[in-house]
């Protein structure tokens, strides 16, 4: 922002930290809202638990079947499936980013924000950061539940059946990738919400994308278990890349398809997600600017 000298005789200069302060205030608002709606928080956590434990049990034997274990990286199906549940939760929850903006638009709250001298993008950023926080909480809790479900009582007392190949750094890196995936979806949903300006449409579109994306990827089963045509689709589905990267960072090289190289799995996931997230966020910012013009 430039210095504006008002003819009324005072100078207005935007302080360098102004944008950060504004984003912080709006981020705090988003978090407060989240905490005040315990029902939403509760169900956004309970649903993934149901998926995790139910699916984890249903397919458990497949991962143990002779000759199959290798495809699952020698892990339990629960462990194999956990990264998929994280992404699935983010997919289902991402619609929220758009819905919040529409309700601010409808309620007149946005108009009020726009008559304050803040940087417009702080509104969008505060909102998206709030959603990322929710996603992070969900991902951490799913990882925690997976860890607990993987504990067994054996000869020497409590034992871990899931091995985290790279320990905490690997887990943190996996969370980072998951958040990048969430950022991309938040951008997409903001764009859809601000373009349609309708809660119903946003909800429908985000749900419409969720299941096909999940089922045409390696989320439920290793790629080689899918029919040929589906494998072809899965190979261009960004979800496959994201999920492979998560499995690699959590459980090590044995969990990714044979013959793929660890560096290229992480590299291609980062590249694809960074590119898509940038595009989506730019589109989101663009549609936001159009609405707030």
């Amino acid at each position: 922002m430039n210095t504006t000298t008002a003819s009324a005789g005072f100078a207005l200069r935007r302080k360098p930290g102004a944008f950060i302060n504004e984003t912080w205030s709006l981020y705090r608002r988003a978090i407060t809202k989240l905490a005040r709606r315990p029902v939403i928080l509760y169900f956004s956590l309970v649903q993934p638990m149901v998926w995790l434990l139910l699916f984890g049990q249903i397919f458990e034997r497949i991962a143990r079947a002779p000759g199959f274990a290798e495809a699952f990286g020698g892990q339990s199906y629960l462990a194999f499936f956990a990264p998929a549940v994280i992404l699935q939760t983010i997919l289902f929850g991402a619609g929220q980013s758009g819905l919040g903006l529409i309700s601010d638009l409808d309620s007149g709250f946005l108009s009020k924000l726009l008559t304050t001298p803040i940087n417009r993008l702080a509104i969008l950023l505060g909102k998206i950061l709030g959603d990322m926080t929710r996603m992070l909480m969900q991902a951490v809790i799913i990882l925690l539940a997976t860890f607990l479900a993987g504990l067994r009582f054996g000869d020497g007392g409590l034992q871990m059946t899931i091995t985290y190949a790279y320990g905490l750094p690997g887990i943190l890196a996996a969370l980072g990738i998951a958040l990048l995936f969430g950022l991309m979806l938040a951008g997409l949903n903001v764009t859809v919400a601000l373009t349609t300006r309708s809660n119903e449409a946003t909800f429908l579109i985000s749900n419409f994308l969720t299941l096909p994306l999940l089922f045409t990827s390696s989320a439920q089963l290793p790629l080689e278990f899918l029919p040929g045509w589906l494998q072809a689709i899965a190979k261009v589905n960004p979800l496959t890349y994201t999920i492979d990267a998560l499995r690699l960072l959590l459980y090590g090289p044995s969990s990714i398809p044979a013959g793929s190289n660890a560096g290229s799995v992480i590299g291609s996931a980062l590249l694809i997600l960074l590119a898509l997230a940038s595009i989506m966020l730019l589109a989101g910012a663009r549609s936001f600017r159009r609405v707030t013009k």
């Binding site: 504006t4 207005l12 709606r37 409808d106 709250f109 108009s111």
Partner: peptide
């Protein structure tokens, strides 16, 4: 921005956050 500091606004819709 200078004008925004001089004016207050209340729209026809009530622009308050119901959760706060």
């Amino acid at each position: 921005d200078a004008v925004r500091r001089l004016i207050g606004y209340a729209a026809q819709e009530v622009g308050v956050d119901d959760d706060l």
